[in-house]
Design a protein around this nucleic acid. Structure first.
Lengths: 165, 165
DNA sequence: GGGACTATGCAATATTATTACAAGAATTCC
DNA sequence: GGAATTCTTGTAATAATATTGCATAGTCCC
């Protein structure tokens, strides 16, 4: 097994968050998006686990940290994060997760969602995207948006059910 | 272009519904599921267009036909239809659509959703599924459920925007 | 007919998301 | 510096989607 896409249990999550935040600042500068304190706070909540969180879970988490946002505020901030590519929406769960991958404009990723640990990971899958493109092109369908989410059990959970963060 | 997967605008929709209902009865017999009048009514609502409908749209449609179901009733019925494979959930829209395809246990389909006419179609995409399988297997991820939904503009709408049913 | 099971009804409520409008903060332009 | 503009956040209400818990009514089997 080359890469299981999910973060190693026991990885240095602190620096994992730190790097992601640094990267986010860079991306925001590039894209002329302001990563305000509130936006960064929401992003940090998403980064705090490798799971997808519902908007109201984000609200509760922030509230525990002393600041309760209205739903609309969180949704607005999520929107900004989504548009900047710093987070993605997990359609099958109506939830949101931070993006840790380096995917540019050309999308070729799929999302893995573990039933065991609830973690979410992105994986490169250019072949799958190629095959999809071939189906859509040959049928004259002009794609604007693709949702490719896969649920199952990650390698860590298969080895040690319930142990992975 | 071989097949655009979407029903031909102007196809005989009456017989299209009729056939689907007949097929549904057959499948239900096979699977020992009861296709009660209410369940058939909900399936007919889904079949009445080739679009995906939200649960509350189904309720309103049935109400116009003289019978108003409680949300829970519709959700329960939808559940039965989903489990019997007579309908599918469109995750990216929190909506449901009738299944017109002959896919067995081995899933290999993707869903096309047209932004123009809102119609939904299923397409065989064994290569895409193969590529996904190869990614997941090599990473030790055991798949239970795959969501593969593609939004865009169907061939009919590209030719004649807004005209397709 | 009676017991077990399935299907539906009804009321309340939980969860997810948006609308409309107001106030505050940052940026631009002169 | 200060007015105008734009972007961000706040507040309140409400819409849209989905579920829980319990009651009633059919169906099946004996």
């Amino acid at each position: 097994m080359s890469d299981n896409f999910f973060p190693r249990p026991g990885h240095d999550h602190g620096s994992c968050i730190g790097q992601a935040i640094d990267r986010a600042h860079g991306i925001c500068t590039e894209k002329a998006v302001k990563l305000t304190p509130l936006r960064e706070a929401v992003l940090r909540v998403l980064l705090s686990s490798h799971k997808a969180l519902g908007a109201y879970e984000i609200i509760e988490t922030l509230a525990r940290n002393g600041r309760r946002l209205a739903p609309i505020s969180v949704y607005r901030i999520i929107d900004v994060l989504l548009k900047a590519g710093l987070a993605h929406r997990l359609e099958s769960k109506n939830a949101f997760f931070a993006c840790l991958s380096e995917h540019g404009a050309a999308n070729s990723m799929l999302v893995l969602v573990c039933d065991g640990c609830c973690r979410v990971a992105e994986a490169e899958a250019p072949d799958a995207w190629g095959a999809i493109k071939s189906v859509t092109q040959s049928s004259g369908f002009a794609v604007t948006e693709t949702v490719l989410e896969i649920q199952g059990t990650c390698a860590d959970c298969r080895k040690a059910p319930g142990k992975a963060a």
